[in-house]
Design a protein around this nucleic acid. Structure first.
Lengths: 230, 230
DNA sequence: CGACCGATGTACCAGATGGTGAGTTAGTTC
DNA sequence: GAACTAACTCACCATCTGGTACATCGGTCG
């Protein structure tokens, strides 16, 4: 709320304050501090995993202190849950923008798959957080009231597309929206999440920009071929 | 912590030895000790991740001591690499048994996909290790001379099936063996690796036995539909 | 039998780690 | 301008962690 740079100038008697980030003026700003911590924590947890991330290091990379992490979040685990909640919320709000209702079912599916593909590619940190959370058997998601039942807009959109395809008689009927979502997610998540071992063993980088169009096309063809088979 | 009741039973002159596991007789057995450590470490690393696993805990779950871990493996990281090497070797040796050469291309592909499906489902710990290794950007695999170039029998088999399919004119030609392997792996890995977050958010367990046949069928249909499309 | 060396157990450590008690500063309210 | 409280700093801690120095044990070989 309300920015008012009380006295920016060199007049300050003591305490240059503020450790790291750019030459900011704000001295006390709860929301800024909180957001700063959350941003740094997101990077660190995504990078090092839950057990691998260090509260001390997160604090150091912040423009505030470790004490503030405990002040705002309570502890390592709660901080991690806050990171997850923010990450999921962000992703879900982006997904809300999906608009493929105007296309015919087959093209709508292809478009949705393509958008999901782009989407995953642009958010590798989110994918990493999800992988990390799976290593922990989603125990933190389960513990979060915010995340437990968080619906997925992509699946809803998928549901209406499928329905239209069924009505038009062009889609097979032995699958539901979640099945199809699973297939699309599997493809998109795998190429990001398993990029490194796949690359190390097969010598092919699944995220190589030179192969991107081919991969994107492959996903579209895959889903469409499957749904329209027979 | 190995209890050794120096003189519990009056009969034994000294040292009943061996702390934990079943009433074994062997007193000094390097291979057994090494294998014991490796087995426990595999479980712990797969369960807790690299950073989350504790050398002390691994040692405690062993029938030997922490000192032996350092004696045989040198350190935490080398132990972890040894775990990875053993896990990959085991999986690869199992894959060597794939035999689908006698089937026609379409059926061979479906069979290979199905076997891969079964295979992944039976080795969740391996999938977890792979996920964990990806969190660490495959740095340990890169550091292992054994693993860096380890070929994958499944991909070779896939290559010959594809070739036969192309010769017979039944498969599309804009993909290679690695692409198809990627698709199959993505499906199989995803349902195990992302089981928990998927379950927490959508309320569907991808590994639910009741849905197993459907999922297996779906993978086969998916790959076949894609390869034979048009 | 005695020397040799691989295998093993005990005790210990320095630094890191998550976490906290308690005091201090700044902005706001009356 | 005094009182009040949210925001923040500083120093500190108990415990854990990976790792190691060192003594010792036991099978084998000459």
């Amino acid at each position: 709320m309300a920015a008012q740079p009380s006295e920016v100038g060199p007049s300050l008697p003591d305490d240059p304050s503020i450790g790291a980030a750019g030459g900011v003026e704000r001295v006390r700003d709860a929301e800024r501090t909180r957001a700063d911590i959350l941003a740094v924590a997101t990077r660190e947890f995504a990078d090092q995993g839950y057990a691998g991330a260090r509260i001390n290091l997160i604090a150091d990379k912040t423009s505030t202190t470790k004490r503030m992490i405990y002040y705002y979040f309570g502890g390592k685990e709660q901080l991690y849950i806050a990171v997850l909640e923010q990450a999921y919320s962000l992703i879900r709000s982006l997904e809300q923008r999906l608009d493929v209702e105007h296309l015919d079912p087959v093209e709508a599916i292809r478009e949705l798959a393509g958008l999901t593909f782009d989407h995953h590619e642009s958010h590798p940190d989110f994918i990493r957080l999800v992988s990390i959370e799976n290593i922990h058997r989603a125990e933190h998601i389960a513990r979060s009231t915010v995340l437990s039942g968080l619906a997925n807009p992509a699946v809803d959109v998928l549901g209406t597309i499928l329905q239209r395809g069924w009505d038009a008689g062009v889609f097979r009927q032995d699958v539901d929206a979640l099945d199809v979502h699973q297939v699309i997610s599997a493809f998109c998540v795998f190429r990001t999440a398993n990029r490194h071992t796949f690359g190390a063993i097969f010598g092919r980088d699944m995220l190589d920009p030179a192969r991107r169009d081919h991969q994107r096309q492959m996903l579209g063809d895959l889903v469409v071929a499957y749904l329209t088979a027979r």
